[in-house]
Design a protein around this nucleic acid. Structure first.
Lengths: 418, 418
DNA sequence: CAGTAATTGTTATGTAACTGGACAAATCAG
DNA sequence: CTGATTTGTCCAGTTACATAACAATTACTG
């Protein structure tokens, strides 16, 4: 339990873990002296900590490194060959898996269409298949993978690794996701909400990196939100935070999958855009979309492509969706005053088409003070925000394990074998 | 900067401060063994820490304490005579000051009507006068007061102790509030947003005590919100979080002081209720309010009194305000999934009249998962939430100082004198 | 009522994790 | 080549803990 006014002048911490984080953060390596400065520790202390990390095999020394003056420092970096990580993003209509080395660099990536409503058993079987395949593609194997992160499109109690009660995930309630996967893979597994992982992914590798107050909005089939507040992921009391998709924006608006009417998701989600497009085509509106083979299977992606090719009606659909999202986000800005708002997910791939109306509504409806210090950008990781967030979460879990076990005298012998 | 996935199995901490907090938390005293259990430290370690605290004079031993079996433990409590604290709540239309002993128990209280729009100099002069008076009322003096907390009705960068840019506080922008007050009182001062302090007050002493995800809504002349998320006060990137009063709820609704139309504050704030009542009276609606002397000065308090006496029109005004607040809070529930929502401020003193419509709208518009695990209550500290939050903040500051200086070998000699 | 188990607080003793100072190694600027 | 600068290491001392043993005190049990 934290204390609401954290004025601890210099909080004491688990230094080994922090040193590992710093080495991981610095893409092109760091040095003992640099670490000592940023953690405000003595160089001698850092030397000892780094020695321990070198013994785990997770960290290695670089040959050389240029500098200004003085003795040539010894570079430090994560030993990429010390193991691998898998991140999985289970969306409502797709699954994506990324294999990365333990330094966080992607090695292979796969995605497939899928419907999460078939229930947990079939979905997790598909997840296992995809993870097998992505490991093969990356010329790896389970033996070299140290931990696995999984994102699912519903409220997750990450501590327990299960879904509480998701509207779009019937049958998942209290299914022990993490437990099941840990049993099959015999590796530490971390399960999170997909939007939360998107926030973590963009915070770690993407737009607004390391910004202590970051909001990530995943605009896909549905609309979800993940938040990093005060430098920490905010999951809410029971993991149900970020359910922005079911804000009521229009009284007696279109019916939503949650049973209510006029929800943001029913107005601006990918499903809503596709539905609106189908209706307009059926009404005989002039649009390129009419030329598509099967109007019944028209998807948000089709609308996006038409919009990119200049179709006016398709563009209007996106603009309207952006307006609704902007109205909701104006509220978010006023309430949370984030430093960065990142728009991701499938629908957001259309870029400014969606972003500009969002920005306009925020400017119009939010208080100046908050807006001036915030920026609204699209996800710099594209569709991979959540999957890379899963990598980041799994990486963090792996680091935790290494630190915990290195204290017991064990070195990283588990995954040495090639 | 925190790390978003805090899976540190047991975070290392400043133990002396935590022991002090635990002693402060336990109203009827605690013991060394209890502290050892809750901090997961050895009894011998706690003994040492407690010894240091006893030397500061801030903690004292109690004579006796009954127990189940075993040796009779020695009680520990905050030494209430070691000093005093003042908390000040500057609202838009009032100032309230509370003198408390260092254990957090109120000793004296005062409030006065005031208009914050007269600017910082005059307001701070009034604050100084009120603090003088409340100290006299409590038979105290500045010499015995260790620190002072002040809440102001605008976005505050608490680290700098100044207001960024408040709509209702012209002339306050970047005025060095904390600096000025520290210079006059020669005591540590902490400045926060008033709604944030309300959240802190209810978290510390009131409803939903110690709930790690608490939302406090201050419904007074305006409407503000304070949040404790993940056990810590969320202030946002530049202290502008919680500005819930200017969410747009009704397109082209009534004009708000912020320049937009249809803001929550313009629909459900105390000012809005009074305005609506005046309009209805002028229209000749049947209501007890018409009997009041001056209709031009009719206030929300008058409407509340009429409602309490059964006036139907007045009750309807409150019900409608509650509905609007409930709509906004339904969004808050979905987004933040708090454990407790506390409704405070002047207008909220009407209790269920306002609360029931709020609860109804939340039930109607929020997702089940979040609502079932949350409770919506009125502020158990009444109008004193913010002022007592200021006491809590000042207390925390005082504790920090004592801990920091006790390390340097100084004992608490500064305020020993009676 | 004696005996036993339970509980608290204190006392040594040992260990991990740091600081601070001294120092050698390595580099650059003149 | 010399001096200033920077890095990493080594060593002595300090702090903050744990662990274990112990004395003091209490409730319960037969």
């Amino acid at each position: 339990m934290g204390y609401p006014l954290s004025i601890y002048p210099r909080a004491p911490r688990d230094h080994r873990r922090l040193v590992l984080d710093l080495i991981h953060e610095s893409r092109d390596g760091t040095t003992r002296a640099e670490i000592a400065r940023s953690l405000e520790l003595s160089r001698s202390a850092v030397s000892g900590l780094v020695d321990d990390l070198l013994h785990t095999g997770l960290v290695r020394e670089l040959d050389k490194r240029q500098t200004r003056a003085g003795r040539r420092p010894i570079g430090l970096e994560i030993n990429a060959s010390a193991g691998q990580i898998v991140g999985v993003d289970v969306g409502a209509t797709h699954i994506r898996a990324i294999l990365a080395d333990i330094a966080g660099r992607p090695l292979a990536e796969l995605s497939t269409s899928f419907d999460v409503r078939v229930g947990p058993e079939k979905t997790l079987a598909e997840v296992r298949r995809l993870v097998e395949r992505v490991m093969r593609d990356g010329e790896s194997s389970l033996g070299r993978v140290r931990s696995i992160g999984v994102g699912v499109p519903g409220p997750v109690i990450s501590e327990q690794g299960m879904v509480l009660a998701a509207p779009i995930m019937p049958g998942w309630t209290e299914y022990p996701i993490r437990h099941t996967l840990e049993a099959t893979w015999e590796r530490p597994v971390v399960v999170h909400n997909d939007a939360n992982l998107g926030a973590l992914g963009e915070w770690t590798y993407g737009a607004g990196r390391r910004c202590p107050n970051l909001v990530f909005v995943k605009v896909g089939t549905g609309i979800g939100m993940g938040m990093i507040l005060g430098g920490r992921l905010h999951e809410g009391q029971v993991g149900a935070a970020g359910e922005i998709g079911h804000l009521t924006l229009v009284e007696n608006g279109p019916l939503c999958s949650c049973g209510n009417r006029g929800c943001l998701e029913a107005l601006a989600g990918g499903g809503a855009i596709a539905r609106q497009a189908r209706e307009l085509v059926r009404q005989g509106q002039r649009t390129h979309l009419s030329t598509l083979a099967s109007i019944d299977r028209l998807s948000a992606r089709d609308v996006a492509e038409a919009a990119a090719q200049g179709d006016h009606l398709a563009q209007q659909l996106f603009a309207q969706a952006g307006e609704y999202i902007g109205i909701a986000l104006a509220g978010v800005m006023n309430m949370l005053n984030p430093g960065v708002v990142v728009i991701g997910g499938g629908v957001a791939q259309s870029g400014d088409l969606l972003l500009e109306p969002i920005r306009a509504q925020i400017r119009k409806r939010s208080l100046q003070a908050g807006v001036l210090t915030s920026q609204v950008t699209s996800a710099s990781l594209g569709l991979r925000s959540s999957a890379l967030g899963a990598v980041a979460a799994a990486l963090s879990l792996c680091f935790d394990h290494v630190i915990a076990h290195s204290a017991a005298g064990l070195t990283a012998s588990a995954t040495e074998g090639r």
